[in-house]
Amino acid sequence: MGVVVKKVELSWLDRTYVWPVMKGMGITLRHFFRQLFTPTAKRYTIQYPDMKKEMPEGYRGLHELKRFEDGAIKCVACFMCQEACPARCISIEAEEFSELNITQGFEEKRPAKFSIDMLRCIYCGMCEEACPKDAIWLRKDYEVAAYDRLAMQYGKWDLMNTYAKADGKENISGDPTPSVPRRTIAM
């Protein structure tokens, strides 16, 4: 069954071609002037090294290992993230860290080493999903680059300090002696 295609009827003005051209030129000129009188900061183009895009909430950028108020790492080395990671780029070594144990309100484990190979990471956020302690977050930094491969192996301290400057926190490079109970468990 055939379909009758209706052709658009052009008015005689449109068929002269000159008038539509002038209309088109009006449109482009409007864009030109609008762009000309917009300050650079408000234009659509973000001039990257000078200006940076503010990433939306929930953006999956560089990881951060979260810490408690006193600087102790939140991660309990449960290996959930390592299991969940589809790119197999997390490797954790756990350690037991003090005589203080779970009955006294302290976790017993923490990672001695925690490394993410940023060259392999696909920023899928599975580690964040899997973590029972909310200890690993993917946040807004997207400038993950380095001059050599080794520098892309982020260790425990790198990961704990990735957002220290952005959040106005101090860089830490050692585990504090735990003093305050993290939680109280009715045994």
Binding site: T28, H31, Q35, R43, T45
Partner: peptide, 10 residues
């Protein structure tokens, strides 16, 4: 530059 301005670029 003109082309860029017309196309809302820089």
């Amino acid at each position: 530059r003109g082309a860029a301005m017309i196309q809302d670029r820089i």
